[in-house]
Design a protein around this nucleic acid. Structure first.
Lengths: 123, 123
DNA sequence: TCATGTCCTGGCCACCCGGCCAGTTTCGCC
DNA sequence: GGCGAAACTGGCCGGGTGGCCAGGACATGA
């Protein structure tokens, strides 16, 4: 069912810059034969930023925060992270709190997603 | 873009598949406010191919699960997802449970990470 | 010396999460 | 019609999470 006359081309818009993303979305929104992918939808092609200006250095993560972040990305709970790093759960929460703050995330899942998007961590 | 000047967005088309590239070029060719980059020209963004070998069929997620998963990747809580989808929190938890099971994840953060790794979702 | 920043720890608490039980409707397939 | 899958909803509850308060140790640099 994929090939044939004219199936819509699904494009994923993966631009960090909100202004550029919005302009592109508006421009591409009413192009017939083309559709922007919903979040998570698999697309035929993706629009990515040409200039990887993704990681602003004003958000500098400390080594310990990177440690915690990496384990968070593995799905580890605070307790597991504490055990792994040999520190207390309270300290883990402290670092997680800093992470949420610096990454502008609402929760640990959001933090991991943001970090992955920015290339801070590799999934 | 307050004035009617030309904040043209230059897009680089970097698709290997000639058929897809041509279709995209044709579709994007006559979109005002947008221009395809000449070879070598610096562009604001690029259109790249999306590897289509992404959805392993051994883990088949339902449409609803994909909806929930996408919102999870945005850092949404169960309550937010419920509001967004117009369903109850219990139903969201039901789908999240299925997701954790199918993706073999220990929690929602792990589920999002696994899904991203497998290409089920795009971050 | 004093200030700053990182890292570490504790308690407390409201809320969220995930797993368990139970049920309903709707849909396509045999 | 029966039957399973998907989607939906409810209650309950132990444990996890995140935000707030407090503090101390240690190194760097002004």
């Amino acid at each position: 069912m994929s090939e044939g006359s004219s199936p819509e081309i699904v494009l994923a818009l993966e631009i960090d810059d909100p202004a550029l993303a919005e302009r592109l979305a508006k421009l591409l929104g009413n192009v017939t034969g083309l559709r922007l992918a919903a979040p998570g939808e698999s697309a035929a092609a993706a629009i990515v930023a040409r200039d990887p200006r993704i990681m602003p250095d004003d958000i500098a993560l400390t080594q310990r925060e990177l440690d915690v972040l990496a384990l968070m990305a593995e799905g580890a709970s605070n307790k597991m992270i504490a055990r792994q790093l040999g520190i207390s759960v309270h300290t883990v929460k402290f670092h997680v709190g800093s992470l949420l703050d610096k990454l502008d995330a609402t929760g640990r899942t959001d933090a991991v997603a943001h970090a992955a998007r920015r290339g801070v961590i590799e999934l």
